[in-house]
Design a protein around this nucleic acid. Structure first.
Lengths: 353, 353
DNA sequence: ATGAAAGCGCTAACAG
DNA sequence: CTGTTAGCGCTTTCAT
């Protein structure tokens, strides 16, 4: 686009913000008194001075510089959230819970998109620390030794969300993945399914991978169904797109199972798409069960049955736990949220015809 | 959950971070020299002192306190993003672009979920200002007079994203909504459709509402098709859920049009769902065109044709424009991004049988 | 009830 | 090449 010099240029001039000194001078009091008033200390000034100060504050449009306050109180009121995947529905919901709690408590949240990249995560951790955030929430990824070392070295309060350390020695909030999968697969069995496949996220993932497969196995075993490893497919990820890459491994199973348990709703949506395009009917000839209960479950046809995790509440809780830790140097060690199996249209009851 | 006192309690002890003074003492130099070294000034110290300082920095695990630096430089390196809807795919994508640009430039972003609520927006603006953010990005909403007044009063740099002021006197980045709709509807006409309905977001919305309807009208008019207002339905919002509430107003049109243009992909997905559940075939007896090009378009069957806005790039650009403004007090006044009509499966070519 | 003064951790002149 | 010093805007004793 052609633009005459200056036409597409925007110029601003920034006026300097008034400081506590200006307020003090205009109100004919000391800065100490102004400080007392704006911080609402219950003593140290008469009603008259208070009103006078407040009037000046209003007139000057004075707003305290939190940065300066931070230097003294050593609390920035900011927390960092490390998200592996910023544009997934999953992260978006969790983030909303975190943000909500933060707002309620007068804190702000820095979003940090790590893309599951070690270098980037470490860089972010560094920047956040230099900004002296009060703490961080680490989302749905394995807390690598390097991350942990950094956090401990600088004693940065942290709570893990939708993930945990093997020893459980760092505060976390999660659902019980193994139990959730167990219940979901049991529900499938309850519907009459005996040949059930699994589309796993990433089997090496010790949090959202292995435990969900384990739950699947136990459910089958406990119901007297032989576990057939060839019915388990590793999608190497939890995204919609991962299904396509696993397509050729999925196809051979289509005639061998009547149902598929997927480690995420996106995988379930991907599988649904894949299966329908292969000409199969869902749930007529194939049932599908997802995990998470994201909005996508009700946007597709048939709507997806799933295992619900209360993501927003979990985010809120994690933020609350972190703030407790920040404010009182102590807090809960973990919080396990209840899951719910939600049956919609994508799962067929084989009992009824 | 029962827990013996202390069992579910996590306690931390925070060590105080080393300061520039400690580094200086350990390295036997002045704090000024340490400052020079860690800021990489190209002069002011020998290679020997530099190495000595760096060694101490490493040994002590020293990381500069950006907050203190901020007091002097008057730049926090933080920007605020005001999002009306944090858990929509739309926001998520834009946010990713913003975050990406920020990271590249060593900045951090505070997410602020306004829920389109005036009080909450103003509260956030206040908190952000008190934290002395360098500037804000205001997302896809009308910049109300109160917001604008506050921003100007404190001369907070701002760039609007996916929105603009009527006068265009505040920097913004957008696509041309009117032109995009015009092109989308023209494409529908090119496919042979003559009876085209529109599911509008919110007609009072001067940004994403009215202009898109206008584009729709002009396209019809320019192709010699009479504009029939009864074919335009106001969904009073852009979300999937809005379609259900408009259901009874949509149904009568189902037999009168061969295609629907929707003001967002979520609306398109909602309409698709609605229409299919009414027994119609898409695109067989009804074509659907969305707007945005979000991932949802390829998750449903049939995949949705849409008008693409380059959301990530737009977010990146807005952040860049804001940083220019912050760093040099001047920058571009606006940036209009190109849109693209993307034809997928949900639109039928009436010309070919 | 109020004010003076000492920092919080750092940068940026200004000397030497 | 290096150190001393004066703040940045605010909170917080400690006097008065």
């Amino acid at each position: 686009m052609y633009s005459v010099a200056g036409v597409n240029v925007y110029v601003i001039e920034r006026k300097v913000a008034p400081t506590i000194h200006e307020v003090a001078r205009a109100a004919r009091v000391s800065i100490a008194t102004v400080s007392r008033v704006i911080n609402g200390l219950n003593a140290g000034y008469t009603k008259e001075t208070r009103d006078r100060v407040l009037r000046v504050v209003d007139k000057l449009g004075y707003a305290p510089n939190t940065i300066a306050r931070t230097m003294i109180t050593r609390k920035t009121g900011a927390i960092g959230v490390l998200v592996p995947d910023l544009s997934s529905m999953f992260s978006a919901h969790i983030l909303r819970g975190i943000e909500e709690c933060s707002l309620r408590n007068g804190r702000n949240v820095f979003v940090s998109h790590t893309e599951s990249n070690g270098r980037r995560t470490l860089d972010y951790l560094k920047v956040l620390y230099e900004k002296r955030i009060d703490g961080v929430i680490f989302l749905s990824e394995v807390l690598r030794p390097e991350y942990r070392a950094y956090l401990e070295k600088h004693s940065i309060p942290v709570v893990l969300l939708a993930t945990r350390t093997p020893a459980g020695d760092i505060p976390y909030v999660k659902v019980d993945d193994r139990a959730a999968s167990y219940d979901g697969v049991s529900a499938l069995i309850g519907l009459g399914h005996r040949s059930i496949g699994m589309l796993s996220g990433s089997m090496e993932d010790p949090i959202a991978g292995a435990p969900r497969v384990e739950g699947y196995r136990s459910a089958l075993a406990d119901h007297g169904i032989r576990v057939d490893d060839s019915l388990i497919i590793d999608a190497h990820g939890f995204h919609f797109g991962c299904v396509e890459q696993a397509g050729s491994r999925i196809d051979p199973l289509l005639s061998r199972v009547t149902a598929f348990f997927c480690a995420s709703d996106e995988l379930a949506a991907g599988l649904l798409n894949h299966v329908i395009r292969r000409g199969l009917d869902v749930p007529g000839s194939m049932s599908i069960l997802g995990y998470d209960d994201l909005p996508i479950t009700t946007m597709v046809i048939p709507s997806l049955s799933t295992i619900r995790q209360p993501l927003v509440e979990m985010g809120d809780c994690a933020a609350m736990m972190l703030l407790d830790l920040v404010d009182s140097a102590a807090g809960r060690k973990q919080q396990v949220f209840p899951h719910t199996v939600v049956l919609r249209e994508s799962t067929r009851d084989l009992g009824k015809g």
